[in-house]
Structure formats: structure tokens, C-alpha cells
Write a protein that binds this DNA or RNA. Structure first.
Length: 467
RNA sequence: GCUCCCUUCGUCUAGAGGCCUAGGACAUAGCCCUCUCAAGGCUGUAACACGGGUUCGAAUCCCGUAGGGAGCGCCA
């Protein structure tokens, strides 16, 4: 036995539904904890439910984790590839008398449950086959395998977020660990896997808290040490109800499509149930340095898309524009727009990011930077492109055409000069100009906008607008 | 039904008996800045689920109640 155990955590999603932000947050907590302690992070796909698992869901898990940069050091493991191992452990438990065959039929079990519920009791297996009071092999049925849970005393789960939680063993029945067709069940696979893979810290949703004492008893029966458990609260929808498809965003990858930065999403998710003083914005490195699973709250929290948007913008404003460029490019290509060179895109990022919550919004609002012509918004044109303002634009056009340096400061000076000459407020010239070159009333500062647009496009659009 | 878990502004949270006339953030309202939209700055509205204890003193400790959630499957 090693004296110093490397901290080993795992994320073990089941590919029966698309990975959503709830799963991502547990993954994040596990990942952060492992990274914080220079430990190991394992990815394990729990696909024993052949019926409901889909390749699409597996793909989303893999791609989603990659997109978010939650890299694993081991895996991905697939439980369906470990059936041999489970059978082996199963046989060992049977041989050691830690598990037994149960020949009860589905009908008998249903009847038992119904009777218990009628008496307002918790439905649980009464252990008839364990004590040779059951049907036995002569029934001719293929048996299931049940784990012999302790019949007395209690099991205490030491949980770092909830504290010690005590379960009386009488509340726990002998769960089925292998089906009549021989395939192992979830609770058993988890135990075998966690033990085999050396998981030291089990971090998962608190919907598993009730399963834990049974898993713990199996682990102990197998001669293993109990890991540290941390059951983290779940995420609720914005309306406080359980998170579901109804709340939009089924798959994490949807956040990528909607133009969120991985670091922003992670930052948002980590703050659901965890905090560090009054700090709201965290870089990935800060999270790795500051996060501790012990500081996670117990209560469930509601997902707030507006705060996510705010954080996304904060991260966009702090990021190196060059890192955002590829993502903006992706958004633009998606819209059938011919992407400009990286330098121009970086300039657009800088000009736009303080007025966009997502890259999707940035791309939508940046369409006018591309293409030769621009479609004038009717209302805006009617209001701002008056006879008077067209004349002003014409005068400005003369000056811009011969401007020695096509850069924001020079452009700004030119606009100011013309406004001065015509005795117009800056706004009376800038707005018509904005409408003429962007087609609408909203854009980054007009001098920056023209600088990015370039002289050629600016002049062409100016001429078109003047008519 | 039984067992387990949870409960501070609309939302995310700070708070580990006196620092709390309960702090920050998002959202929201107003003001400032301003070529538009933003970003930014300032100001405001807004919470300890309820009831009992313990204590000189409770958001913080204990007990109930209510509400919410999870588990109880040959699902994971």
C-alpha cells in the first residue's frame, strides 16, 4: 500500500442523454480538484444500459469535454468493455459468500413491493433467497445475483460537503448486482471501477447520495478502503424547477454554437455553489489555484442565463483578441461570410466586444464589415439620411477621400472638422454617416468603424447613400 | 408511504454567536459619461422560510413545522 495516494477523481457520465451543464459542472469540480492537487482525472463512460445509450451522446461527452478543455489523464473507459472484469469480481463475491443467487420472479418481487407499500413501508427486498426461504434453483429460473448487505448496524457516509450522513442498514436491502442474463448493474460496476481505477475522491451529483451507503458496503466487502465522497448539489432551471430540455440548451455544445467562451461557461458554472469572497471573474489558472471541494454549498442553485451572458462578455473583454478570432471566424463562416484576415478580425473583436454578450451576437452585429454593399435600414435611412445630412456627408466624403492616413484618429479629426465647418453637432454628422456605412444606427465608435471598414468600402457606401 | 438531503435579496452568493442598521455580483430603476449601442462610474429598490428554545447576545447552535429535492428498478 502506498503511503501517499495521488488524488484521483473521475467523471462518469452515462450516455443516455446529451451532456448538459449540470453534468459539466460536476465534471468541472472533479477536474479542478484533481488539477489543484496535481492528481489524476479519469473519464469513464457508463454505457451499461445498452438500450438507452447512444453514440451521439458519447460524441457530445467527448467533444464537449474537449471544447471546455477538461482534459483527462486516463480513459475514456467504457464499461461495456469491462464486462469480463465484472464477471470475475462477481464470481469472487459469490465464492466468498458475499453475494448470493436469487430466484425470485419479477411477479413475486412486484407482489412483495405492493404488499409493503400497502403497509406504508419502504419497498425493499426481504432477503428470502438469502435465508433459503425463496424459490431456489428448482424453480428452473435463471437467477440474479444479490449483494449481501449488512443486516444490522448502520453505514456512515463521510461526505465533505454534507458531513457525516448515517443510514441504518435495515433501510438498505440486498440489491441486484447482476441481472438474470449475467450482465452487471450500475451500482456494482461503479464500485468495481472506482476500486480498480484507484479513485480516491468520488465527486458526483447529490442524487447519488442515497446510493452511496450500498456502494460503500460493497467496496468494504471487497476489501477496499472508502474513498472521500463529495455530493454536489444539482442545478435547477431558471424557474427553479429541475433542469430539462424545456429550458433550452440540451447539449453543452450548444453553448459553443451560441458563442460562449469555454472559460466563461466554466467560470459561471463554478460559481454555482462555490465562491471565493467577492470575486466573480476567475481565470482557469485562478480556479485551479483556489478551488476546494470543501467549500461547495449544499443547496441546489438555479441557472441564470443573464449572468452567464454578462460573464461571457467580461471574459471576451479580458481575453487576448487573437484567441477569440478563430471563434468569431467560425461564426462568420457559418453565416456564409467570407472571413477577412486575422488582423482585421482581431480589430473587429476589439471594437465589438464591449457591446456583445456572445460571439454569435458579435458576428450578427459585424455583418456590415463584410461585402461590398450594405442594406440600408429603412427607418434609419428615413430619419438620418435627409437632404441636409446628405450634403454634409458629401462634404465629409471629399475630405475622407484624400485623407493622408486612414486611421481612427485622423478620421475622427476629419469628422470633427467637417462638423465644425457646417456648424453641426458631432452627432448630427456621425449618425448619418453611421447609417450610410453600416446600414443601421448601431455600431462601434464611428471612427473605429470606418478605420476597420477601409477607405474603399467607406467611399463606395457613402456615394451609394448620398444617391 | 418510507429513508436521506436542502432552505440568506427575483437569481448566484458572503456570513462559521457579538465586526450585520445583513456585504458583493447578475437582473432592475435613476443619474453621470457620450457620435449610436455599449462598456464604465455613482445611487436606489430588494433577503436571513416559519415557530419554539439555548445564550447577556443568533442569519449563525438545538428542536419542531412548512416548502423543495433525491432515492426506494433485473435504469444509470
Amino acid at each position: 500500500m502506498r503511503l501517499t495516494m495521488t488524488v484521483t477523481t473521475r467523471f462518469a457520465p452515462s450516455p443516455t442523454g446529451l451532456l448538459h451543464i449540470g453534468g459539466v459542472r460536476t465534471a468541472l469540480f472533479s477536474w479542478l480538484y484533481a488539477r489543484r492537487h496535481n492528481g489524476k482525472f479519469i473519464l469513464r463512460v457508463e454505457d451499461t444500459d445498452l438500450e438507452r445509450s447512444t453514440p451521439e451522446a458519447v460524441r457530445v461527452i467527448l467533444e464537449g469535454m474537449q471544447w471546455l478543455g477538461l482534459d483527462h489523464d486516463d480513459g475514456p473507459h467504457y464499461q461495456t468493455q469491462r464486462f469480463g472484469r465484472y464477471k470475475e469480481v462477481l464470481a469472487r463475491m459469490l465464492a466468498a459468500g458475499k453475494a448470493y443467487h436469487c430466484y425470485c420472479s419479477k411477479e413475486e418481487l412486484d407482489a412483495m413491493r405492493a404488499a409493503q407499500q400497502a403497509q406504508k413501508l419502504k419497498p425493499r427486498y426481504d432477503g428470502r433467497c438469502r435465508h433459503a426461504r425463496g424459490p431456489g434453483p428448482q424453480s428452473g429460473r435463471a437467477p440474479v445475483v444479490r449483494f449481501k448487505n449488512p443486516e444490522e448496524g448502520s453505514t456512515i457516509v463521510r461526505d465533505v460537503v454534507h458531513g457525516d450522513v448515517e443510514f441504518r442498514n435495515t433501510e438498505l436491502d440486498d440489491l441486484i448486482i447482476a441481472r438474470s442474463d449475467g450482465t452487471p448493474t450500475y451500482n456494482f460496476c461503479v464500485v468495481v471501477d472506482d476500486a480498480d481505477m484507484g479513485v480516491t475522491h468520488v465527486i458526483r451529483g447529490d442524487d447519488h447520495l442515497n446510493n452511496t451507503p450500498r456502494q460503500l458496503n460493497m467496496l468494504l466487502a471487497l476489501g477496499h478502503q472508502a474513498p472521500v465522497y463529495a455530493h454536489v448539489p444539482m442545478i435547477l432551471g431558471p424557474d427553479g424547477a429541475k433542469l430539462s430540455k424545456r429550458h433550452g440548451a440540451v447539449s453543452v455544445l450548444q453553448y459553443q454554437e451560441e458563442g460562449y467562451l469555454p472559460d466563461a461557461l466554466l467560470n459561471y458554472l463554478v460559481r454555482l455553489g462555490w465562491s471565493h469572497g467577492d470575486q466573480e471573474i476567475f481565470s482557469r489558472a485562478e480556479l485551479v489555484a483556489l478551488f476546494d471541494i470543501k467549500d461547495v454549498n449544499k443547496g441546489a442553485s438555479a441557472f441564470d442565463p443573464e449572468k452567464l451572458q454578462w460573464l461571457n462578455q467580461q471574459h471576451m473583454m479580458r481575453a487576448d483578441p487573437a484567441e477569440i478570432v478563430p471563434q468569431l471566424r467560425w461564426q462568420l463562416v457559418h453565416r456564409g461570410i467570407e472571413p477577412a484576415d486575422d488582423e482585421a478580425l482581431a480589430a473587429i473583436v476589439v471594437a465589438q466586444r464591449e457591446r456583445c454578450k456572445t460571439l454569435k451576437e458579435m458576428a450578427d452585429n459585424s455583418r456590415f464589415f463584410f461585402g461590398e454593399t450594405v442594406l440600408l435600414d429603412e427607418k434609419a435611412a428615413h430619419k438620418h439620411l435627409t437632404v441636409e445630412s446628405r450634403q454634409a456627408l458629401q462634404q465629409l466624403g471629399y475630405r475622407l477621400r484624400t485623407l493622408p492616413q486612414w486611421e481612427a484618429s485622423a478620421i475622427h479629426a476629419a469628422i470633427q472638422t467637417v462638423a465644425g465647418e457646417l456648424d453641426l453637432s458631432l452627432g448630427k454628422l456621425a449618425q448619418p454617416l453611421r447609417v450610410a456605412v453600416t446600414g443601421g444606427t448601431v455600431s462601434p465608435p464611428i471612427d473605429q468603424t470606418l478605420a476597420i471598414l477601409g477607405r474603399e468600402r467607406t467611399m463606395a457606401r457613402l456615394i451609394a447613400a448620398i444617391g
